[in-house]
């Protein structure tokens, strides 16, 4: 997915600070890392890019479609059909098993049909994430690391064109970190998806096309 942002300004409702982003453009298949201190606005940027949050000024264009001009319903539809989101706090449904959590997007939207291919994809993803044996377990009974990998699989299941991941490796050991990273990279490549990852993990940065530092100097500026 082609991404363009034009002079985004987002003021936090409680008035802590204002996130300002200059015009930026990334071609389809870009791999972008967002780094910055906690509370610098990485998560906010991901939300702005996905249309969960709307900026006060400026615009976000995905494949030349202005997100800010879309209705809420259309933004949601675009999100569930074209984006995969790995939330920082995972946001899994406790009462579902690991595989049901991964299947959730298909449950929530009629345009996504769960077919053999999707099932195969789920299996592949879980195997590569090393959690397939746990697929029937309720996520409440999984370790943090396992839950994180379930969250990653859920983001990837519908073959999104834009993958947004908020600290997807924060709670993983070295091996699993590598696993998740390669999963994200491989899948984004397979789908031709752009991948935007907010991370603290400087070890990973080499693999990205560009690294954006957020909130370094001017609070909301970009380095």
């Amino acid at each position: 997915m082609k991404i363009a942002i034009n002079d985004l300004v987002y003021a936090y409702p409680k008035g802590e600070f204002t996130l300002r982003l200059p015009a930026m453009r990334w071609p389809r298949g870009s791999r972008i890392a967002l780094i910055g201190a906690s509370g610098s606005g990485k998560t906010t940027l991901l939300r702005l890019l996905s249309g969960i949050t709307l900026a006060g000024r400026g615009s976000v264009l995905l494949d030349d479609v202005d997100l800010t001009a879309l209705s809420d319903a259309k933004r949601r539809a675009l999100r569930i059909q074209s984006m995969g989101f790995v939330f920082q706090e995972f946001r899994l449904l406790e009462y579902l098993s690991a595989q049901e959590n991964i299947r959730l997007p298909y449950r929530l939207h009629g345009s996504l049909a769960w077919d053999d291919e999707a099932e195969k994809r789920r299996q592949g993803l879980m195997e590569r994430a090393g959690i397939n044996p746990l697929r029937l377990r309720k996520v409440g009974r999984l370790s943090t690391g396992e839950r994180q990998r379930v969250a990653v699989c859920r983001a990837l299941i519908a073959s999104p064109r834009l993958i947004l991941a908020d600290e997807p490796t924060a709670n993983l050991d070295r091996e699993n970190k590598r696993r998740v990273q390669s999963l994200l990279f491989a899948e984004s490549q397979r789908c031709g998806a752009s991948l935007i990852v907010a991370t603290h993990d400087r070890e990973l940065l080499d693999a990205f096309d560009s690294v954006i530092h957020i909130g370094d100097e001017s609070k909301g500026g970009i380095a």
Binding site: S50, I52, A73, R75, R76, A77, L78, R79, I80, Q81, M83, F85, F87, R91, L93, L104, P105, L108, H109
Partner: peptide
């Protein structure tokens, strides 16, 4: 609320 919010974040419609 959190659960429904997650669904909304994922793009689930209000109707659903």
């Amino acid at each position: 609320r959190d659960e429904f919010q997650t669904m909304q974040y994922m793009g689930c419609s209000r109707g659903t």
